[in-house]
Design a protein around this nucleic acid. Structure first.
Length: 257
DNA sequence: ATGCCGTGGAAACCACGA
């Protein structure tokens, strides 16, 4: 079974790219972030024509997350991350698919840091830690995947020294990610490729993709029951080279049945 | 050192992204 995550950076603006990638790789479950579309503007029919059921939580202009399943039932568990009734951003959606719990997240960027946006990022991270701990305690098979907006280590940044004061790489951010990991989650890509330079995002300008000046910020966190089934993981890097493409590339894992 | 590109939405510019 293949599960993928993809920050599409505008689900309607990138629809041809999304559909082409879905047809090419036919993942069984897909998590999308940055829909940048209100609930009623999600391209449900075009996606259904490729055989995908969908749950989504849209928002006008910004954010927005979705979970797609190919030929499988999908049951909504929640559409908001618990812990702050004042939070209006569509950044989390969670569903059950064939007994598997899928949490699809778009963690706040947090720049400029320090400042209120960075405070929001760290608070969101704390809420994620609380919720992730509950999921871990449930002993169920759980996948928490999406755009974490965190480079966990220096290996995940093309020029670490240039990013130390950035909200995606500051010590507070990396500490929060490590604290989450210490609950017992497995970083799928880094576990299979402990020493390789692997990126999931390249800026649009300064020829970042051509220079491979990238970041690894889209992650798959697996609970122990899922980690045991992990057989492969990777990045569909070539998709970043397509016309009218997102600045992120899709990331995927393979699980044995 | 830098939003240099790109999106969506409103209004021919702005907020936002990493």
């Amino acid at each position: 079974m293949r599960i993928a995550t993809y920050n599409v950076n505008g689900v309607n603006g990138r629809l041809p790219v999304l559909l082409r990638w879905l047809q090419e790789t036919t993942p069984d479950i897909v998590c999308l972030q940055e829909l940048k579309a209100p609930q009623e503007k999600f391209p449900e029919q075009a996606i259904a024509e490729l055989g995908y059921n969908a749950l989504w939580h849209g928002q006008k202009s910004w954010n927005g997350v979705a979970i797609l399943t190919k030929d499988a039932d999908i049951t909504e568990i929640r559409k908001v991350l618990p812990g702050d009734t004042e939070d209006t951003h569509s950044r989390y959606i969670e569903a059950e698919v064939n007994g598997l719990i899928i949490g699809c997240l778009y963690l706040p960027n947090g720049n400029p840091a320090p400042g209120p946006k960075f405070d929001y990022k760290l608070k969101w991270f704390e809420r994620l830690q609380v919720h992730a701990a509950e999921l871990m305690e449930s002993k169920k098979p759980v996948i928490l995947t999406g755009d974490y907006n965190v480079m966990p280590t220096e290996l995940d940044v093309y020029k670490p020294e240039k990013w130390v004061n950035d909200a995606l790489f500051r010590p507070e951010t990396r500490d929060a990610f490590q604290k989450l990991m210490s609950q017992g989650w497995t970083d799928a890509i880094r576990t299979l490729y402990p020493d390789e330079k692997i990126y999931t995002f390249w800026d649009y300008f300064r020829n970042a993709y051509g220079r491979d000046a990238g970041l690894r910020i889209d992650h798959f966190l697996l609970s122990p029951k899922v980690a045991k089934k992990l057989t492969a993981a990777g990045v569909d890097k070539h998709v970043r080279g397509w016309e009218k493409t997102s600045d992120h590339a899709p990331v995927w894992i393979e699980l044995k049945d």
